[in-house]
Design a protein around this nucleic acid. Sequence first.
RNA 1: GUCCCCUUCGUCUAGAGGCCUAGGACACGUCCCUUUCACGGACGCGACACGGGUUCGAAUCCCGUAGGGGACGCCA
Length: 469
Amino acid sequence: MSVVTRFPPSPTGFMHVGNARTALFNYLYARRHGGKFLVRIEDTDRKRHSEEAVQVIFEGLEWMGLEYDGEALSQFAGMGRHAEVAHEMLKAGKAYYCYCSPEELEAMRETAKAEGRSQFYDRRWRDRDPSEAPQDIKPVVRIKAPLEGETTINDVVQGAVTVAHDQLDDFILLRSDGTPTYMLSVVVDDHDMGVTHILRGDDHLNNSFRQKLIFDAMGWTLPVFGHLPLIHGPDGGKFSKRHGAQSVREYKELGYLPEAFCNYLLRLGWSHGDDEIISREQAIEWFDLEHIGRSPARFDFAKLDSLNAHYIKEARPERLLECSREFYKERHGLELSDIAVERITLGIEELKARSKTLLQFVDESAFYARSIPYAFDEKALALLGESKAILAALEDELESLEPFTGESIQNLCQKIAGDLAEGKLGKVAMPLRAAVTGTTVSPSIFGACAVLGRKETCARIRFAVQQGK
RNA sequence: GUCCCCUUCGUCUAGAGGCCUAGGACACGUCCCUUUCACGGACGCGACACGGGUUCGAAUCCCGUAGGGGACGCCA
């Protein structure tokens, strides 16, 4: 039997990290077994549906590199078929019309709550004669859930889970306007699409029992279920806005590489021995259901950072620059010129080694992309003010330094430090850094000057000396 | 409230009765490197929720307790 998995997001306007992981696992499992990974947009609720929200999902999948098979389906499009199934169940006596008014339902809900029961509908229309139906109420269609016994589902993640039938209510299949509910639609779609494995969030575990009722009523084979524990925020509570980033798009905007994000998500709830760095190829080869954890995990940005730092180091310069382009613009108003690209590429090894995120990479390499005049931060300005003589001497010597390399520049600074600063290299290097980069934090300043070249370095020093207070 | 699920270092986890004086990664601490901030290197700190069983032997199996999470819609 060939594997078919699916990712069924509802278009809420963003893609939650939990959904992202669900998508990843489904993708990996399908690829691992040479099966199909399908996407279905759960858009039956038209009030909450919008095209932009759907786009956000595709954007997220694309960024993560999760290619799906065939066309993404719209659940909305299958509503007619879903309703048909409900009517079949009606005909087969496995469902019935219920004429309760919202007020009646509300009253039942109150009573049930007071009595501590989890289901509230008292099945008053289950065996009632349709001739008693009120004329002014449009009925809903409810399933006839079993009254006695229990059902066990062998969840591949959670193990055998048993629920007593008195916990299952006669839930609604068709709303009073004739449209199918989610519970019906998923089952029909999953069956029609030939889905063999359903990997989804833990919050659906209880729904599985209801869905099994429909599968059974229609005589359809039940897919394999696997319920993944939820992802919690760093404080162990629900993952919310205050934790930083809930949606996939935000991670991109925070300067994370998709491979780092996916690697992190993969290890959150799944393991392969002691392996931490796992490439996409490796993940496809290794992924299995047996090693999915059963307990919820907290999201840890520090670990994501370290993974991101790793993948930044591995990334090719062109790719890094490509992913960073928009950040130079957004954060520094810089459009990367050819010369900027050339300089950054020359200094990239050190830049990569220092960066945990693309944002940091961009901030620390921005000085390469700038040209005179540029601004200095406060600390840099102060340094310039007290080091004019040193900078002037340095500039003078730099004009004729041969060769113009990181090493020779360092030696020169050493010499000037000996002459003018009691041998303290920092007294020369720091002002030079302030002059050339406009800040007090940067990669190795000698190497940076070599990358900039003699002409640019000297020009920057002259410019800086004029700015110093 | 009712039902379901979960519980190994601060965090993610390895572990499927003896290989465990419990391993790895991130974080943290100390030291080294050093022109800044980092990177890197070395070393270190640090956990089987609790209580009962079962067994020659339990992190691993069973039962309770506590704690955490989830579900209880004409939402998905």
